[in-house]
Amino acid sequence: MSNSRLKLSFATSDYEHVRDVTMGTVEPEGIELVPITLQIEEMFYRFINFEEFDISEISSGKYTSMISQADDRFVGLPIFPSRVARQSSVYILPDGPIKKAEDLRGRRVGVPEWGQSASVYSRGWIEHDVGIPLTEIEWYQAGVNQPGRKEKVALNLPEGIVLNPEPEKSLSGMLLSGEIDAILTAHAPELVEKRDKRIVRLFPNYREVEKQYYRDTGIWPIMHLYAIRREVFEANPWVAQSMCKALTEAKNRSMERMLDITACRVPVGWIYDMAEESRDLFGDDFYPYGIEPNRTTLEAFLLYGYEQGLFHKHLKPEDMFPKEVQSEFKV
């Protein structure tokens, strides 16, 4: 039977809510998957630059920037394996000049890439909610912990935005030396991961700050999506819906496990209580896929990215995905 199925490579991070697909418990119809689990930055680098995988997780920021520039090598799916609120991603020195978000005005702020999805939302929050125009911040781009990181997509920066690439430096080193005043990054600085208090978060109580941000705006930031190489999609357009159905089923099974108080399914105490809290905040489907349940977030993301010069056109959510996955059948 397996010989009659289309064999495709599938690169992804090791998510609990995707694992039923990568382990073969849930099989996409008509597809024999070859799962490849990779570190995020490596996976994005290899997929965007070399197209090494048939289906891969990809940065929503980089993917959308590409399609806004008519680079259509990939076909996106409205399946969002990683979503993280981003007030938690602002890092500062404990004795530095920034004590509150408003102090970012007139300061020097580093990002690992202007095109990183996390920083799109962070900058959107700074401009639209904190009230600081991005032109009133001096921006720097470098790797978080290591020198040498570069932008992966072409930018169309608005007039007045200053972005200084620093290929020979790291953001963590620049923060410690006083060359910048804050970092916006998805991947926490290594010192923070090691609980070294020389670098700290702007919001120690970030969970409460981020929940209130969602209540106020309806925005729950989407970091990543899955995409198919266009050659694969055009030869087999049914693959898109098949993958969406399988990944949605895997996610639904994962949510059921998180709500099960009979046994702890992940090594986190009170995980079922956290899942119930998420259900209270986000609704019964507390990790939604698809366009319509995520329209508020997607529209904000597309506006922010366009305003910031990452997206070269102001797109609609429907522009991100093929018609085959923009709706689903009903019985």
Rank of each mutant, 00 (worst) to 15 (best):
A263F: 06
G290L: 05
I271G: 01
I291W: 01
Y287R: 02
M255F: 04
P288K: 01
Y287A: 09
F286E: 08
E256C: 03
C264H: 01
R257N: 11
I261K: 12
G290H: 04
C264N: 10
V268N: 00
I291K: 06
A275L: 02
D280S: 10
P267G: 04
G269S: 13
D260T: 04
D284W: 10
C264D: 04
P293W: 11
L259P: 04
R279A: 12
R279D: 05
G290V: 10
D273H: 06
L259Q: 08
I271Q: 06
F282Y: 15
R257W: 05
P288E: 06
D273A: 14
D273M: 13
N294M: 07
G269L: 10
E256P: 03
R279Q: 15
E256N: 09
I291A: 12
A275S: 11
M258V: 02
Y272L: 01
S278P: 03
F282L: 15
N294Y: 03
N294W: 10
M274K: 14
I291Q: 09
E276K: 09
P288S: 05
P288G: 07
I271M: 13
E277L: 05
E277I: 02
Y289L: 07
M255I: 09
I271Y: 07
R279I: 09
F286M: 10
I291R: 06
A263I: 05
P267F: 05
M274G: 02
I291L: 15
A263P: 00
M258R: 01
M258A: 05
A275M: 09
I261R: 13
A263M: 00
T262A: 10
D284T: 14
R279W: 00
A275K: 00
D280W: 04
T262H: 08
D260C: 06
W270K: 11
E292Q: 13
I261F: 06
D260F: 07
A263L: 03
E292C: 06
P288N: 08
N294C: 08
